[in-house]
Computed example of a mutant assay.
Amino acid sequence: MKILLANPRGFCAGVNMAIETLETSLSLFGSPLYVYHEIVHNRPIVERFRAKGVVFVDDISEVPNGGTVLYSAHGVSPRIREHSRDRNLRAIDATCPLVTKVHMEAVKFAKEGYTIVLIGHEGHDEVLGTMGEAPDCMVLVEDEKDVDALQLPAGVKLAFLTQTTLSVDEANVVIAALRRKFPQIVGPNKDDICYATQNRQEAVRELVPEVDVVLVLGSQNSSNSQRLAEIARTLGKRSYLVDRVSELQEDWFRPSDTVLVTAGASAPEDHVQDCVEFLRTKFGATLENRVVREEHVSFPLPKELRVLVRK
């Protein structure tokens, strides 16, 4: 067996920032510390922080008056921020700057009188936050069928935005369908799909022709991790999405397989290495690192924390 270890993989700059924000907040304020939604969509990370006294909530009313709450990397709507202020919460914003960019685009288009078509997955935390920026003038589509069913007034000013963690290929299909149906539609000046999502997808596409099976580290509720597994399946390869080594099954692999190992943008590296070690131990696998693209992006801690850390 041979393992191709994809680079880039795993944590993106937004996830690194969100996790560092939560760790720093714990050291400054102690527990219990509240996070609105999961800090990132990764089960082992959420479990690790729960063990340290972090409480993850899906309703801001679950945070005691005057308490400390972190907004997750996926962002929140203005309504949540308003509720936090009303209840005198200390709010620390760990929203990924690339998600904030989409929120700002939504506000800009809404002020200019556009109806906004958001391409994304219904119910995803990021989608809920983005739609909250302009709920009266935004509609959600997931695929071409949704575009076909879209009924809008003739000549309406129309713009589109995308969830940051989509498959680039799938998003382009939906954008093309929107452009065919609504030739007047405009988009953001720069692609909304984040650099890390695109880079990890690019690595899978480039390396998958050389392999028999693809192993993706990431949680089932992680959109970008799901996309990696889907891309591999679309390209005809066996593909498995797991959180940790204990989920691996030996009969997924043949001794002669070449296995591509990668990880979604919220999956920790220690679980990647555990899976590599499993394949080495069970199948005598050799390891080859493959770098498709280098990443050198980093985001600072939220300003409300940077001030406290400097003190």
Rank of each mutant, 00 (worst) to 15 (best):
Ser167Gly: 06
Leu166Lys: 01
Ala159Met: 02
Cys137Val: 13
Val168Asp: 02
Val156Pro: 02
Val168Leu: 05
Leu161Ser: 02
Gln151Lys: 14
Leu128Asp: 13
Ser167Leu: 04
Asp148Tyr: 11
Leu161Asp: 01
Gln151His: 14
Glu144His: 12
Lys157Gln: 10
Asp148Ile: 13
Pro135Phe: 11
Gly129Pro: 11
Asn172Phe: 02
Thr130Asn: 06
Leu166Arg: 00
Leu166Ala: 02
Met131Ser: 10
Glu144Asn: 14
Asn172Gln: 10
Met131Val: 13
Val147Gly: 04
Met138Ala: 15
Val174Thr: 11
Gly123Arg: 05
Val139Ala: 07
Glu122Lys: 15
Gly129Gln: 12
Gly129Ser: 10
Asp146Ser: 14
Ala177Lys: 07
Glu122Met: 12
Asp136Trp: 01
Val173Ala: 07
Glu126Ser: 07
Gly129Tyr: 13
Glu144Ile: 15
Asp136Asn: 11
Lys157Tyr: 04
Glu122Gly: 14
Glu122Asn: 14
Glu133Asp: 08
Asn172Gly: 00
Gln163Asn: 12
Thr164Lys: 00
Leu128Pro: 07
Ala171Trp: 00
Asp136Ile: 01
Gly120Trp: 05
Leu152Pro: 09
Thr162Ala: 11
Asn172Trp: 04
His124Val: 08
Thr164Gly: 01
Thr130Ala: 06
Asp125Leu: 11
Gly129Cys: 09
Pro153Leu: 05
Glu170Asn: 10
Leu158Ala: 02
Leu158Val: 01
Lys157Gly: 03
Glu126Gln: 08
Gln151Phe: 05
Val127Met: 13
Val168Arg: 05
Ala149Tyr: 03
Phe160Asn: 03
Ala154Pro: 03
Ala176Glu: 11
Val127Ser: 11
Asp125Ala: 15
Val173Tyr: 01
Gly155Met: 00
Val173Glu: 11
Glu122Pro: 08
Cys137Ile: 06
Leu150Gln: 08
Lys145Gln: 14
Gly120Cys: 04
Thr130Ser: 09
Ile175Ala: 00
Leu128Gln: 15
Leu128His: 09
Leu140Ser: 03
Glu142Ala: 12
Asn172Val: 00
Val156Cys: 09
Asp169Ile: 02
Gly120Pro: 08
Leu150Ile: 03
Leu161Thr: 01
Glu142Tyr: 11
Thr130Lys: 06
His124Ala: 04
Asp169Tyr: 11
Ala154Ile: 05
Gly132Met: 12
Glu144Met: 13
